[in-house]
Simulated assay, not measured.
Amino acid sequence: MPPRTLLLTAAAMLAFAGNSLLCRLALKTTGIDPATFTSLRLFSGALMLALLLRLRHRSAAMAGSWPGAAALFAYAAAFSFAYVNLDAGVGALLLFGAVQISMLLWGWRQGERPGSMSLAGLLLAFAGLLALLLPGASAPPLAGSLLMLIAGIAWGAYSLLGRTANDALAATTGNFVRSMPMAALLSLVLLHSASWDPSGVLYALASGALASGLGYAIWYKAIANLRAIQAATVQLSVPIITALAGALLLGEALSLRLGLSSLAVLGGIALVLCARRRATA
């Protein structure tokens, strides 16, 4: 992998992990509510992406679609509300696992036939998520966990809807812009519980403009020089980066349950990816 691609890929993975950290940090340590965080994240992300699109080509037009925007909004809203009481590392694992598993299941529903290695990997990943959610002293809150799984499924749907986009940056910009009225409506409906403070607003803007908008733009630059299997595999690092950063920056515990579940989920997905690589070799 060329050094420039390696640096871009590393920066993108840090940005993806940063979304979880910024959201959890904001909802844990500041007065901002999840609906306001969602709105500010999507608004600032839309502004950053529109700026990047204009800088790339002054006459560039936005693309995207309303279904894509709806999936993006569902992901962002469920993500924020989940992090009210989920640790950053647990949330990232649930999100990443749900995204990958939902996309794999969709592919198989469309006619992709899994071999024994792929099937074993999928079952292992499912088992890892189930083990994480089983009742116990170290189990994450069920409501937050279910919301994060919904966020992962929504992001998987968003990714599938965007696979045919000719211009990823233009499509993402259009989807972010279209999600703005949905976010505004959410904030209006929950206006009675709205709250914010300067720190919370700053974290939300950083999540939208930097970790989301700029992070996605960096990822699109990197992915142009990555094979599909490389792009999928490198994302296995995101939950690990998030869990370690959550422990260092937020004082979150690295429990044995989280460690074993991470090995099962990420290991299972890695098996599926290896099987795909062999099948296309």
Rank of each mutant, 00 (worst) to 15 (best):
L210Q: 03
V189G: 09
L263E: 14
N175Y: 04
I240V: 15
L191K: 02
A88M: 04
H57L: 00
A279P: 01
I240Y: 09
M180K: 03
A76G: 05
A74L: 07
A63C: 05
D167G: 01
T9W: 03
G259D: 08
A168C: 00
S212E: 10
Y203N: 11
L6C: 13
L7N: 08
L93I: 07
A69W: 03
H192M: 04
A217N: 12
I153D: 05
A154N: 06
R56G: 15
S261W: 06
F79V: 00
L27T: 12
A77Q: 05
L169N: 10
L104Q: 11
S145R: 01
F176Y: 15
L161K: 08
G111A: 05
L188C: 12
R277I: 00
L130V: 14
A270L: 07
G45M: 01
S20P: 07
G64V: 00
L260Y: 11
T29Y: 14
A222F: 06
F79M: 07
G251N: 05
H192C: 00
P181A: 10
A131W: 15
F37T: 11
A154C: 05
R277W: 12
N19K: 01
F96D: 14
S255T: 15
L52V: 07
R257S: 07
R278H: 11
A228R: 02
T9Y: 09
L205I: 15
A247Q: 02
A120C: 09
A228E: 10
L7P: 05
Y83P: 03
Y203F: 15
A275G: 03
L210G: 13
